[in-house]
Design a binder for these strands. Structure first.
Lengths: 183, 183
DNA sequence: GCTCGAAGTTAGTGGTGACTCACTATCTTG
DNA sequence: CAAGATAGTGAGTCACCACTAACTTCGAGC
């Protein structure tokens, strides 16, 4: 297998493991095992654990951003927003992406990671804004709901059979319809 | 100093340190140093690091919940919601509480912590609901904005001098006024 | 003034984890 | 086929860290 292919495998494994444990809670050993290689070889292909974490962040954010973009391409603004909400709901099934996002925010105590996380977040933000042609408070609210869904994923609220828990774990169905912000 | 007083000191130090590094990113040595005691003595007063983390979570969530409750006590529903929004904005100054919250969610890979985090979150949720007399989607949106503010605190977006960053770091001024949800 | 318990410390210990070094195996190319 | 590059590993290093054991200090009560 070529180094580049192997790097992809590692990245896939890293996203999965970092989703579970975050930067500090995941060992490079865990990642290597999942990727099916020895732990030292991981360091041949990624210089440091932190670099691998940042790569994982970028992969996870990238997949989310791309999925949203794709689902809304060619639709008019109002339908684009609905489409993105649907897509995000679909992403909920694969908790990996949401959890990596959450762990990225949590790891922002480190300046390098903070810079990378800002870049990823900004990209996500501007993609949504551009594709749906919205801005201002309506955009803020859209992203806010996304953040709540991340928390719901972390808490595994879908396992909790109570009304409030169900409310948190899915996009509110009606809030899209009425344009509540001025924008 | 009595053991109970010391426990309070440790808890204060723990909240501060865990806010910076989270469960895995903070050493008990760091906490002990900040509390001004030797590291082994910490284990006389808290059985494990995890127990101390859970205590820190509960302290942080408790302070938030209490602050919201206090600020809204005696007001009618609509004013209560505004008051709580103001209070949360004020809490933004002290990023400690928001960050401990975020790290609590991130540490939910551990079942014990997940259970504790759900309990804290549920309490926060039901307090807001009870005090403001709201429910359904309007409540969801209120909490969602709170989650976005947590992320903004982690990313230190107030340091970023760009429009989108400013949008994230404060409660949208107008969304309170119009009852956008049903009920 | 002596004892007893509670506050607190110093010096470990066993384990883990990021990262390195020296090595092997395989493949390609002149 | 010789030789260099490329994929990959086993064994180790060094620092850190959660937690323990054994000791000291000191104030209160008899």
């Amino acid at each position: 297998m070529t180094a580049d292919e192997r790097r992809q495998e590692i990245l896939k494994a890293a996203v999965a493991e970092f989703a579970l444990g975050g930067l500090e809670g995941t060992s490079t050993e865990d990642i290597a095992r999942r990727a099916g290689i020895s732990q030292p070889y991981l360091f041949r292909l990624y210089p440091t654990k932190k670099a691998l974490f940042i790569a994982s962040m970028e992969a996870a954010f990238g997949r989310i951003t791309t999925a949203l973009e794709d689902s809304a391409r060619g639709l008019d603004d109002e339908r684009a927003l609905e489409a993105m909400a649907d897509t995000y709901t679909a992403l909920l099934q694969d908790r990996e992406l949401l959890l990596v996002q959450l762990h990225s925010y949590a790891a922002c105590g480190d300046p390098d990671i903070r810079v990378a996380a800002r870049r990823c977040f900004r990209k996500l933000w501007s993609t949504i804004s551009g594709v749906a042609g919205i801005g201002g408070e309506r955009l803020t609210m859209f992203v806010a709901v996304g953040m709540l869904l991340n928390v719901a994923a972390a808490l595994e609220l879908d396992e909790v059979d109570q009304e409030w828990a169900q409310l948190c774990s899915k996009v509110p169905p009606s809030w899209l319809e009425n344009g509540d912000g001025p924008d």
